[in-house]
């Protein structure tokens, strides 16, 4: 049985879709079978970031309503054999996502894939709660600024209350992915510090992704940043995040921060 990850944040524009695509492509490069699922019905973007927008025939709503089989709706990535996309519908309303339908689709995907990565829409409404409903692991995407941190805190509360795992009395594994970390702004001191964010959210840190033109360039190319430019700083940070997802213990380094005289390692943990 595969693992289900939800990539969520509460706030929009923090990098959920970019991170979903980058993590998916990074996992697939380790020869794991991955499907990325777009839950943003009506405002789908994941197909664009994956460069699959011209190959969408059926979408998740079609599968839920029985108009198409799951295998017909899945799109295989042209570059990576083991990476698939299940697109959202752009024309339908999000009310078409039913609880039973989502459960059936996720259940089926879990049987065939090692990782099911759900790209949650922004907000805390139906789409977001359905995307997190069946997750085993949550990746909470947060920018180092107060509004994003508070929204993430709200989402963590929902993850602990509204997911299937939480309702069974189990704990959902939660990880913080700090994105759009701007080195120059951090140097000027007009951004929340990493430690402050960790203290407020008190969940373990999966990685820090620097703000970079490489991410934008990759999105415009229709390729996840971990495929477009594997040596760029954000790609490296995503590769490390994936290793941590697989249970490796790696120190997290803060972009732009000089290491100490003795090559001090920044081992960071959250409470």
């Amino acid at each position: 049985m595969g693992k289900v990850i939800v990539v969520t944040s509460g706030k929009g524009g923090v990098g959920k879709t970019t991170s979903t695509a980058a993590l998916g492509a990074a996992l697939a490069q380790r020869n794991e079978k991955v499907v990325v699922v777009d839950f943003d019905v009506g405002l789908r973007n994941l197909d664009l970031v994956m460069g699959a927008e011209r190959r969408v025939v059926y979408d998740m709503i079609n599968v839920i309503q029985g108009d198409a089989k799951l295998t017909q709706a899945l799109i295989r990535d042209k570059r990576l054999e083991t990476l698939f996309l299940l697109p959202a519908s752009q024309t339908r309303d999000k009310d078409c996502l039913t609880e039973e339908g989502v459960e059936r689709v996720i259940g089926e995907l879990k049987k065939h894939f090692d990782w099911v990565i759900c790209d949650s829409p922004a907000g805390i409404e139906r789409g977001a709660t359905l995307a997190m409903r069946h997750a085993d692991i949550a990746v909470v995407v947060t920018n180092p600024e107060v509004s994003s941190v508070r929204d993430s805190d709200r989402i963590i509360g929902l993850l602990d209350a509204k997911t299937e795992k939480a309702e069974r009395g189990e704990r959902i594994e939660k990880h913080l992915l700090l994105t759009r970390y701007d080195v120059t702004r951090a140097e000027r001191g007009d951004m929340l510090k990493v430690d402050d964010v960790l203290e407020i959210l008190s969940i373990p840190l999966l990685g820090i992704i620097p703000e970079s033109m490489d991410v934008l360039r990759a999105s415009n190319l229709g390729a996840p940043v971990t495929l477009a430019d594997q040596n760029s700083a954000p790609a490296k940070a995503y590769f490390e995040a994936v290793r941590r997802l697989n249970g490796e213990v790696l120190p997290v380094s803060i972009p732009g921060e000089k290491r100490g005289l003795f090559g001090k390692i920044f081992g960071r943990r959250a409470a």
Partner: peptide
């Protein structure tokens, strides 16, 4: 967490952790 509301009229509340903004 932000958005959560704990109401306990019966007595004391002890939180081992923080009470978030909101």
């Amino acid at each position: 967490r932000s958005g959560q509301s704990i109401v306990f009229p019966e007595g004391d509340v002890t939180v081992i952790g923080s009470i978030a903004s909101g």
